[in-house]
Amino acid sequence: MNKVNVEDLFRDISKCNQVEAIALGGSRVSGKYDDKSDYDVYVYVKENIPKGSRMNILSKYCCKMEIENHYWEVEDNCTLNSNTDIDIIYRNIEDFDLTIGNIVQKNIANNGYTTCLWNNLNTCKVLYDKDGKLEKLKRKYNIIYPDKLRHNIISKNRKLLNGVLPSYDMQIKKAIERNDKVSINHRVTEFLASYFDIIFAINKVSHPGEKRLIQQCIDLCEILPMDFEENLKDLFENMFNEDCNIIIEEIVKNLDKIIEQ
């Protein structure tokens, strides 16, 4: 499918009365896409578009369709006739405003990935905006990274790394003692989610998402922990043995040095 056909798809979606705006995100906007990159499309609505209406539109452009998935947000996950995947995410525009406000105005931190949606809003390319509501949101939240948000992200996620009873390092240690590889993998993943959230917060950089995080840190962050790449390489190579505990201690120690700066 060529560019004109994709634009035709977006145009057809925009004709639905419920649609307020459409935006493109991810690597297709940043220019860092490759042959395996999909389209990340965000459709902002005032109310839900009927499932049948979406299916009628998408069937003209897609060879595979999964309509109304709810794994993360409300999504239609499809494959275009060109065999390129496209994920269409539907968001109530008023609810989305409240969600971003909780992060940027109320400074509420999450367990990892705190500022991803804020980054998504700031970096998306607006393709359609019926009454200018999406552009208004972009202007509203195009602000300097709040110091309180930075503090709250670091404080909440740092405690999860070690130092409290449910901290990830203790959970990883127990999982290694049990040789529970599934649990090790899960806890290390959560450890890294908080670790990267802290690094982006230290640098007052909104979180760019889950892909290519090591390179994203190198490209976007002026302040990185000592031995940043080496520590992560060692972690991945020793994740399922007792050396993992020592490496995690080193990762946290190096992270603390830049938190204290």
Rank of each mutant, 00 (worst) to 15 (best):
L127D: 11
F10S: 03
D219E: 14
L134T: 11
I88W: 11
D131F: 09
N17G: 04
N81D: 11
T189V: 02
S37E: 08
N157F: 01
C62Y: 12
S167D: 14
G209Y: 04
G163P: 09
S30N: 09
E20R: 14
K211G: 04
D8L: 06
K106A: 13
L117M: 15
M170T: 12
D40A: 00
L192P: 10
N102C: 09
S167N: 14
I218N: 14
L127P: 12
I93C: 14
I251Y: 04
E94M: 02
E94V: 08
K174V: 01
D256I: 01
K60D: 13
K133G: 05
Y42K: 05
V74A: 10
Y61D: 09
F10K: 05
N56F: 04
V126M: 04
E230D: 10
N152L: 01
K138I: 08
L117D: 15
L127E: 15
N245T: 10
A23W: 08
N69I: 02
K64L: 11
K181Y: 14
E249C: 00
V41C: 02
G209M: 03
K148H: 03
I172D: 04
N81Y: 10
D169Q: 11
D131E: 14
K64G: 03
N157D: 14
L213K: 15
L98A: 14
